[in-house]
């Protein structure tokens, strides 16, 4: 039974007054007390197991003579319920003043009309948004895919690489246009003069073919070259690896500081998380002994070489 304000209040012997306010327990989210207007005072009385609430009546189990032991209402100790944020109160409490209703406008009582307007509003949204999807996508993805750059870049003279199996870091300048910005920066790759053993390890007696995204071969590295150029980018996640003359476990190896992949001077993975051997770049030797490369880059983290630049 829901409690109503203005309910009469009856003790075990007689009527004593009426309910003027109810008091809520903010944690329990239920009515804990009622405020009763007696002849001469307002008192706060707890609702307990003996209280019976019926339509328009609150019936206590105790006699009216006990009423005086309950405290007088001190309004300063209470806050109005609208001034306190009690989570989920509405769902927990059925108090005054019951349901308060507002009529739905006559024009909108027709369900099909309302559905029509809802659908129409959504349709307008779709019609406006749909043609924009493609242009926006193009706009945002424009620089993401670009053709490959097959320019030959000179990185140094083969005459400077004298000792076999001793990798040498060669640095070169590269100009790149990114959007409106043209920048020149330094890059580096590793050049190794290869012994016959390394030649066998790298080429297995066969040429290395480089294919573009359509599968067309754009260059072939022949096994008879005296040097090999390893891309400076670690095939694991793209850091720059280094050459170590005295790694404490493996001796003379390439070593990547990022996730500690180890490669021998022929690019073979000796240890660490790298998924494939070092990338051999497309190269040729010009008549003057200049080493020329196509500065391709391959996707890191894949078992095989997938060109991205």
């Amino acid at each position: 039974m829901t409690l109503k304000i203005k309910s009469r209040v009856r003790c075990s012997d007689r009527d004593v007054g009426e309910v003027t306010r109810v008091i809520i327990d903010a944690i329990g989210k239920s009515i804990s007390h009622v405020v009763i207007q007696l002849d001469d005072s307002e008192r706060v009385v707890p609702l307990d197991g003996d209280t019976v609430i019926t339509e328009g009546l609150v019936q206590f189990g105790f006699p009216s003579s006990k009423m005086g032991q309950y405290p007088l209402l001190d309004r300063g100790n209470y806050q109005q319920v609208k001034e306190v944020e009690i989570a989920g109160l509405e769902r927990h409490l059925e108090v005054f003043p019951g349901e308060v209703l507002v009529p739905v406008p006559t024009l909108e009582r027709d369900i099909t009309r309302r559905t029509f307007f809802t659908n129409f509003t959504n349709a307008i949204g779709v019609v406006l948004a749909l043609p924009l999807v493609y242009p926006v996508l193009r706009f945002l993805t424009f620089p993401m895919y670009q053709g490959f750059d097959n320019r030959w870049i000179r990185i140094g003279n083969i005459g400077k690489i004298t000792e076999a199996d001793k990798p040498k870091l060669v640095k070169f300048q590269k100009t790149v246009k990114e959007g409106y910005l043209e920048r020149e920066f330094q890059k580096s790759h590793w050049v190794v003069k290869i012994s016959d053993a390394l030649r066998e390890e790298i080429y297995h007696g066969k040429s290395i073919e480089y294919k573009d995204s359509n599968g067309k071969v754009y260059w072939v590295n022949k096994p008879d070259n005296d040097v090999v150029v390893f891309s400076g980018k670690c095939p694991h996640l793209g850091c720059a690896y280094k050459w170590k003359e005295n790694h404490k476990r493996f001796g003379r190896v390439f070593w990547c500081p990022c996730h500690l992949s180890i490669y021998d001077s022929g690019g073979k993975v000796l240890d660490g998380p790298a998924p494939r051997r070092l990338d051999v770049l497309p190269m040729r030797i010009a008549g003057t002994g200049e080493i020329e490369i196509i500065d391709a880059e391959f996707k890191a983290g894949k078992d095989n070489m997938i060109r991205i630049i």
């Binding site: 945002l140 993805t141 620089p143 993401m144 895919y145 670009q146 790149v176 990114e178 959007g179 910005l181 920048r183 880059e297 996707k299 991205i308 630049i309």
Partner: peptide, 20 residues
């Protein structure tokens, strides 16, 4: 993955577009 990474970088590798 490939699309996401390119989308974030604004290209196949990190560069000026990535910063923007």
């Amino acid at each position: 993955g490939d699309f996401l990474a390119r989308f974030l970088r604004g290209g196949p590798t990190a560069g000026a577009q990535t910063l923007s």
